[in-house]
Amino acid sequence: MIPGIAVLAEKFRVPICIALVLGVWQIVFVLGVVNEKYFPSIPTIAVAFGQMLTDGSVIAAWATTFLRALIGLIGAALLGVALAIVSDLSPILSRGIRYVSDVLQPIPPAAFVPMAVFMLGLGSKLYAFVIILVTVWPPYLNGVAALAGVGPVQLNTGRMFGLTNWGLLWRVKLPAALPEIFTGIRYAATISLIAVIVSEMLAGRDGIGFMIFKKAFAMRTPEVFGLMFLVAINGVLLNGLVNLLRRGLTGWHMRMMERSE
């Protein structure tokens, strides 16, 4: 009897969690802890969300925000890995890049936006700049650590079969480092989405971030919550894409880890 319930709970864990969150939300609403104006009921939000989905401008904003986050993530991942490779090849450049990263990394995305508006205007350059500047660090840092951590026996194996510099990097070091690099890219996916929303809020003319800001000032609370739900969906989609790529490129590692558990 009990194991049966455990199996069911495991199988339906996602719907159960969602039901729990919605249930707690609704209880808070019914108890009237927060003013209804700022904390609408689940049905109210659901209706507002349903109406938004029929609104073309919302769908367009959703797609815009998703594309920005995706393109920013791709750019940041490529740049981060490139910086890690350069660091691995040249100790001098490595130290230089590390200083820059130490200075820039703690700066939150919001702090970049005002400066970037003056430098780059309100267009796509702004987004690229802000997103990449805050998203590049996890792939870079993980990449540096992973490349440095490739074992001497693996390197000697590559060299024994005639690989040098680039060949060794491409055929031995990068494949060995890829699983750890992907840990950084997954983290970067979340940061990329945050950076897009913040940039859109502060300097945007479109996108979900901009809409949330607009609706919030108009006190359209149910719609704000609906938009937040769309942001969450974007996060899930982005993570899904990264995981798909990760499975394709480092599936061996995932299976190896599953085995050793």
Partner: peptide, 21 residues
Amino acid sequence: TAPPIGLSVVFQDYSRSLLPW
């Protein structure tokens, strides 16, 4: 001066010398 063709080492730590991917 570098590992020549025709010579190969079976390393003491052989399990780490196989590429897991």
